[in-house]
Nucleic acid binder design. Structure first.
Lengths: 265, 265
DNA sequence: AAGTGGTCTAGACCACGGG
DNA sequence: CCGTGGTCTAGACCACTTC
């Protein structure tokens, strides 16, 4: 039954955003019990093809991912890119009501964070405990009232202490400038990109349906051999793609690639 | 019940690769019917946390993704990276029996492919039909007998005709060299990275369980303003991550980042 | 109030894996 | 052969959405 429905969807018999017949009707149509219908729908839901809403019905999912310029160290900060480059692009794509919320905390590094900063995972008392303090800035970006992406950046406390990095405000002149004024010029970085399924918590906060993976990007930036920050960005993969440039790419790259979608056939 | 089990797994009460109690026992333990047990297990399966094997049982999934150096135009070909850089890394990680199979076809561009080559999606007869011919090289890489990644590269027929690109052999000296000899020096490219759930077909060919997304990387490479190739790489996200360098990254980058995992806590 | 999906039950039989 | 998960049924009640 799942195969039959998948075919019907792919053939366009149920176009994107259209409601399917209700479970009872499907049960009649396919001459099976409602339990079987639900099992079939679950399969399609977990493939990300349909969404199910209690009290409403079952609809065909639509995929229109937006391309993210993931340009590296030279090329402005993420926040900058969001407000200057990304938000306009979103508006063009028909989205509106774009906002962000920022929270700042001071904490001791989790083992994962310590690793990213090049410290041994467990505090072995070789070095002052101060070295393991990080300022954590969590920036949630909302589009049309839904969480769009979540970015968590860790700065060493030794760099961020007593600076504007510790206040939960949008940094208008860009992180680059701030770090530059503090004497840290980032000259290289790496990104790791992967994907995983969301936890129930994440399903709730992102408002994604089952069957939608999360894209996860980790970035560690360096000034020489000093780690200046570690950023983890999480985005639902039905709405986000990352764009990386190689070689001498032209400035209009984003325009060129902005309507690319991995969901195309 | 899914929450309880998820907690138990996270607390390490069921370590990775361990079998869970069977469905009957779980039903007793939680005082629910077997249907409910299965619903709970389905949830965890679709989150990628457990795998279910008929006739065997239910086990806790392990995530040890391998980091892929996705370095760009300067830095050798993908095939090169696979045999020279990647395969050794895999062997170190305990994998063995690495092989690849190559198939070559000549086809007319699908609309998606035409777009990547900068042609209008539909053939509007402005230009010879020859311009829409592509040589398609599908390279499947197998590790331990399972499909590990699938890479499909499209070359314009006008470039690839009568060259070794049309024979289904491993290109030992690298695509770069071949294209260079043909007078095409790739000087820039872009990558788009996204994720989606696999189709049932892909579930079968990759041998992934439900709940494991696929990482999809599209790359278009240019020699000047001429597109030399379009490559689409598909990889299960539980075993693959992509590494991108920014700025003046050191040569040992891969070593530095090779044990990073987005699944760490 | 009516209609939708969400959850749960108890029981049956099938298909696969391993001894 | 037996134990495992895979599929299916028929029926019940709950929770959410809409009118």
């Amino acid at each position: 039954m799942a195969n039959a429905l998948r075919g019907a969807i792919q053939r366009g018999e149920y176009p994107p955003n259209e409601w399917l017949p209700n479970e009872g009707r499907l049960a009649e149509e396919f001459q099976v019990s409602r339990g079987t219908v639900r099992a079939a729908l679950k399969i399609l839901e977990n493939e990300g093809r349909i969404g199910m809403r209690q009290g409403r019905g079952v609809y065909v999912r639509d995929f229109r991912p937006i391309v993210h310029l993931a340009a590296q160290v030279p090329g402005g900060t993420d926040a900058e890119r969001f407000t200057d480059g990304y938000a306009p692009q979103l508006r063009e794509a028909g989205y509106d009501r774009i906002s962000e919320s920022i929270e700042v905390q001071l904490e001791t590094m989790r083992p994962k964070v310590a690793k990213r900063f090049g410290l041994p995972a467990e505090a072995e008392h070789n070095g002052s405990p101060q070295d393991r303090l990080v300022v954590l800035r969590q920036c949630d970006r909302f589009v049309d009232g839904r969480l769009w992406e979540r970015q968590i950046t860790h700065y060493p406390y030794s760099i961020a202490a007593e600076t504007e990095l510790m206040s939960p405000e949008h940094i208008t002149d860009g992180i680059d400038q701030v770090l530059g004024r503090l004497g840290y010029t980032e000259d290289w970085s790496w990104d790791i990109v992967g994907a995983r399924m969301p936890s129930p918590r994440e399903v709730e906060s992102f408002g994604v349906g089952h069957g939608i993976p999360l894209l996860v990007q980790e970035r560690v930036a360096y000034a020489g051999d000093r780690v200046t920050r570690f950023t983890e960005t999480t985005m639902p993969a039905d709405r986000h793609q990352l764009l990386y440039a190689g070689g001498d790419a032209p400035a209009e790259l984003l325009l060129l690639a902005s309507d690319v979608s991995i969901f195309e056939r």
